[in-house]
Simulated assay, not measured.
Amino acid sequence: MSKPRVAVVFGGRNSEHAVSLMGAGSVLDAIDRSKYEVVPIGIAQDGRWVLAASDQRFAIEEGELPVVDTSGAALALPSGGSSLVAYDPGAIPVELGKVDVVFPVMHGPFAEDGTIQGLLEMAGVRYVGSGVLASAVGMDKAYMKTVLAAAGLPTGKFVTVRDRDWRLNRELVLKEAEEQLGYPVFVKPARAGSSQGISKARDRAQLEQAVEFARQHDPKVLIEAAIEGREIECAVLESPGDEPAAASVPGEVKVEGGQEFFDFEAKYYPDQMSLTVPADIPDETAEELRALAVRAFEALDCEGLSRVDFFYTPDGRLVLNEINTMPGFTSLSVAPQLWAATGVSYAELVDRLIQLALNRPAGLR
């Protein structure tokens, strides 16, 4: 029998392009080539699909972020029958063969937000991770928090700033945020990840600047009341069959190097953050947190893997900050490390996600 064919897709048209490549490099290294045939596919920053070059760079080198190498053949994915077709301009298309499953190691808009999932759903191609709705809701922090709160999960206070309101009623937006949230606040793009575009504001001038900074990534912005507490994270993994999803042991993340909160550098550059697993919290709190993480996973109808982030306040409360339907996925990222501490190695995690996708029916579920 032929081996299942896995297309690992990475890159994309957003500010998390490099993060996607870093995760894809780890996935490509971890996939068991004796068990699967692998096709690496990059989506360039201009939207072109290419077969990955043999020397494609996936890591930060000398401070330079990786990008998709567009020297490969342009690619149309998929064609009829879940097949890949590669072509060069003016040349005859070349059939690359059937794809059994796509592993989209992608983050941010035009990727993690349900767009690539919708494309694959239309083509009837199985893929790793959450479906269109869960991906879209999980990407949009305003809707995510609304859904989580409706499910009875503990969330913080926030104000959504939409493009039209900011352009036409800026002073009113600022006043409402001050009245509802006070200071300090955190301001972030509503539909971006990897801590891109985040600022902390302590007064109106800083708040206005922070909204403008976040709008460089997304015209829709979230202003959140600051929550005092330690950041505790938990990963959730779909179980095979009809078993409930499983939660990892929780871990605590801390910013190092004098930074006040997690930004892109803190997450992806060396020695900028630390992870303590298991987190030093009471056993009953850890169990409550794991249960809440699974409830969040189910509230959004997630599939595959998610990471759920909490604040653990000084008075012992848990506040759910957000859920990430395709978390950072290098072997050193938080979610894989949490699973490694729970007894699931990175290679086992990659294999399990592929198997879950292969055994999932295409179409409505």
Rank of each mutant, 00 (worst) to 15 (best):
D113Q: 00
I281C: 03
L320K: 07
P361M: 03
P250Y: 14
L289T: 02
R170M: 03
E233C: 07
E265S: 14
A340G: 12
A7G: 05
P109D: 01
G152D: 12
P361K: 04
I116T: 04
R13N: 05
P40S: 01
A335Y: 14
E252H: 07
K157D: 15
Y346S: 08
G258L: 03
L353S: 02
Q196C: 12
V8P: 07
E284Q: 11
V38Y: 12
A293Y: 00
G108D: 02
V221E: 03
F110R: 11
E121C: 05
Y143Q: 10
M106C: 00
G42L: 00
P240A: 02
F10S: 00
A226Q: 09
F186K: 05
F58K: 03
S331L: 08
L207G: 03
D29A: 13
S274H: 11
M139A: 02
G131S: 10
E231M: 10
T155Q: 06
V350S: 11
E303D: 11
E212P: 03
V137G: 00
S306V: 09
Y127Q: 01
F297K: 06
L168F: 10
L168N: 13
M326K: 07
L222H: 08
V85M: 11
F110E: 13
L364W: 06
G258R: 06
D283P: 07
Q117P: 05
G97V: 09
G80M: 11
G241H: 10
A30N: 03
E224Q: 07
E61K: 08
V9M: 05
V147N: 05
W49Q: 00
D165I: 05
L338E: 08
C234V: 15
I198E: 04
I227A: 08
F262V: 10
Q355L: 03
G129N: 09
A266Y: 12
G258F: 04
E112R: 00
M144N: 04
K254E: 15
P219S: 07
R164L: 15
A291T: 15
L275M: 11
N359Q: 12
L181Y: 14
Y143S: 07
E179W: 05
L358Y: 03
V125P: 01
D315V: 11
D280Y: 04
M139G: 02
W49M: 00
A247Y: 02
A347S: 15
G118A: 08
V27T: 06
A91N: 09
D29Y: 06
I60V: 15
M144G: 07
V38I: 15
Y268W: 14
Y269C: 08
T342M: 00
Q117D: 09
V27Y: 01
T115C: 13
K175Y: 14
E179P: 05
I198N: 05
A53N: 09
W166C: 02
D309E: 14
V128K: 05
D32C: 06
D309M: 09
V9Y: 08
Q117R: 07
C302W: 00
D165C: 03
E256N: 10
L51A: 12
V277R: 04
A149Y: 12
Y312G: 02
L75F: 04
I92M: 12
G152A: 11
L28G: 03
